[in-house]
Design a protein around this nucleic acid. Structure first.
Lengths: 146, 146
DNA sequence: CTAGATAGACAAGTGGCTTGACGAGTTATA
DNA sequence: TATAACTCGTCAAGCCACTTGTCTATCTAG
């Protein structure tokens, strides 16, 4: 009956743990200058065709905040700015090889964080779980929560 | 096979949506001066026996940050400081009636956010889902993710 | 009784974000 | 095609939640 409240708490708890574990693992793999929020930017940039304004909308922040984030990631060597083919105002963003390496590290960290959970439930139940959650997940970008 | 990555994304997406919906709903119910992070503080305080230092540990921030948060919540009328029965240094924190009202509003908002998901899956499958997640959820406090 | 730990406060600084204003470039309208 | 409205990215200033560092009062262990 009141599993609704329990569900909320569980999702928040899992999400928090996930972010924490991924961040720790990525740091340990040598990317110490990245913070959790950067992952959401990487996701949009690696999807391709992103400008700073696109990124801002994806992250749900102002253009200025996104520009600042991009500047930081460029300075640290994760992101490159290219001229935009159709718009002289805009610059197209892309990941450097280092940026892609960081993305791979994060993916691997996510898999490692989830692995014990899959083991705990068993593959069959875990697959069902993913299927159920897929039905619930909202479309649209994944953003930092707050 | 690679549902692990999908699972991570789903949990993050659901968590983000959940936080956003709860915050919006709580604001609309008249608590416009509360932000998502406050909920985690309310959770610890309403559990009882909390001092500022306890709260700091629960939230994973410094004592000073917790003290500042408490000061803000006291000023806004959600929290009270009481003398600690056994320790003259410490002050025991408690929710005011307004604080409890805000907590009820947040709970109701959480239920409302989850309701459509339960409907989508059906009660039986939803219950299973909650049971599965319960197996995975780490013990310990629920904290803001980053 | 005293040494060390802990609760909370005061002060200063930091970093990620905001609002506001702007020039350069693009798109829509008449 | 001229011009008005909009958009991209940037500069500048300020905000605010958080940090580190320090201090007093109080508690606790040897």
């Amino acid at each position: 009956m009141d599993d609704a409240l329990a569900f909320s708490a569980l999702v928040l708890a899992l999400s928090g743990q996930l972010v924490q574990e991924i961040h720790t693992s990525v740091s340990q793999q040598g990317f110490e200058d990245l913070r959790p929020a950067h992952g959401f930017a990487f996701a949009r940039i690696s999807a391709g065709g992103a400008t700073t304004a696109d990124l801002a909308e994806h992250l749900g922040v102002t253009k200025q905040a996104a520009a600042q984030l991009v500047e930081e990631l460029v300075r640290k060597g994760y992101v490159e700015r290219h001229p935009h083919p159709h718009d002289a105002r805009a610059r197209l963003l892309g990941l450097t090889e280092t940026g892609r390496a960081a993305t791979r590290a994060a993916d691997q960290a996510a898999r490692a964080a989830v692995a014990p959970w899959r083991e705990e439930l068993g593959q069959a139940r875990f697959s069902e779980l993913v299927a159920d959650l897929t039905l619930l997940a909202p479309p649209g970008p994944i953003r930092p929560a707050w």
